[in-house]
């Protein structure tokens, strides 16, 4: 009984901690500034889309959105491909090479990618990869490879040896086993890792902040930083900007949340 009360109140509390700030933002984007200051949770006096209109006419939101999608999608897809190949290799190679490779990537897990910001900045200046989406994608891949390989390796190791061996007896090569056994079995793990990576790439601020200045190459977090300067004195506009920047992601999340979360959990049980 006591446990139930404890459990339910804690669960409710954290849910409120998420819902309340989100509601403030949603409601605030329809309000005038002084309404936000006086009572942030009250319904707007009149539902007006003025803030949205101002934002869309004044700030170009489409380009940064497109850039963020391009950078995130390509980064995640390529990372997953490279990481699953490497993880499969590591998981199946019980030799010293496999151990060494794993150690090599574990090193990357221990070195936060952020420390490389100075050399990467200068390297990219030399390679003309600043103000380039390709540059951001490359950085994202390098930064997220270690964690992806870490997750996927442990997953591939969990696949019972017999399943690989059965295929091996049939005379299938490594690539074939990877494609026809490892990949299909690890779809949930790939999905989970993919979501992980997507969130990282989508949110990354540090590298874009340093590498991108050109207007037409900015990603959404950078645009939000700009909005912060532009609408520094107006929370209603800031909240609107947050809404506009997040709505596509939220829509995707609501739309795919079953495969996001259910896939993740159910898949893990089966795996």
């Amino acid at each position: 009984m006591l446990y139930k009360v404890f459990k339910n109140s804690l669960l409710t509390l954290f849910a409120m901690a998420v819902i309340v700030p989100s509601s403030i933002v949603v409601l605030g984007s329809f309000k005038k500034d002084n309404e936000i200051y006086s009572d942030p949770l009250a319904l707007p006096k009149s539902w007006s889309f003025n803030n949205f209109r101002t934002l869309i006419t004044e700030g170009n939101v489409f380009t940064p959105f497109k850039n963020s999608v391009i950078v995130s999608v390509f980064s995640v897809a390529i990372t997953l491909l490279f990481a699953s190949l490497a993880a499969y290799g590591i998981a199946r190679m019980v030799t010293i090479t496999g151990r060494l490779l794993f150690l090599l990537f574990s090193l990357g897990l221990a070195i936060p990618g952020q420390v490389n910001i100075i050399p990467i900045y200068h390297l990219f200046v030399k390679l003309h990869l600043t103000n380039s989406l390709l540059g951001l994608i490359l950085v994202n891949i390098a930064l997220t490879l270690p964690i992806s390989i870490f997750i996927l390796t442990s997953f591939f190791k969990d696949i019972p040896k017999e399943m690989y061996e059965v295929a091996g007896i049939d005379g299938a090569g490594h690539f074939r086993i990877y494609r026809s056994i490892a990949l299909p079995l690890s779809r949930p793990a790939l999905g989970a890792t993919g979501i992980f990576l997507f969130v990282i790439c989508w949110n990354d601020l540090l590298y874009p902040l340093m590498l991108i200045t050109q207007l037409d190459k900015k990603t959404l977090p950078l645009t939000l930083i700009d909005f912060r300067g532009e609408f520094a004195t107006s929370y209603s506009m800031l909240f609107t900007a947050i809404m506009v920047a997040s709505v596509p992601m939220i829509a995707m999340y609501i739309f795919m949340q079953r495969s996001f979360i259910a896939g993740l959990t159910a898949g893990a049980v089966k795996g």
Binding site: Y121, N131, M210, T213, Q214, L215, D216, D226, G229, E230
Partner: peptide
């Protein structure tokens, strides 16, 4: 095209960013 940074950011990062653009 106008590219606008907040004045705090511009003070700190203006050079690092514009010098490569």
């Amino acid at each position: 095209n106008q590219v606008i940074m907040s004045s705090n950011d511009y003070t700190n990062l203006g050079y690092a960013k514009i010098s490569v653009n």
